[in-house]
Amino acid sequence: MSRITPEEVRHVARLAQLELGDEELEAIRLDLDAVLDYVDLLKELDVDDVEPTTHAVPLDLTLRADEVVTTLTRQEVLQNAPSARDGMFRVPRVVEGGN
């Protein structure tokens, strides 16, 4: 039995901002089904009283000095932009009106 419906896989693709064709969606749905069946293995364990690990090695979090330092220039930051204008990244119009 499928665990993930075609509607669910389309929803996840929307969350992930991925455009996927119908065949690709179906292939991924079947792969996810198989992987989710496999990871059910973890349900065998009682983890109610176990703390989650976010980093394996305890971190020494430190604050850096609050100093102004040289970073990349605007030109360097924009050099890889697919589209830029007037020192800014350019995207399709989001807000209607104006020019």
Binding site: V39, L42, V47, E51, T53, T54, A56
Partner: peptide, 13 residues
Amino acid sequence: YYLRAQKVRTLIR
């Protein structure tokens, strides 16, 4: 899924 996996990660460590 995610939270359970992070807990099992503790057991592995």
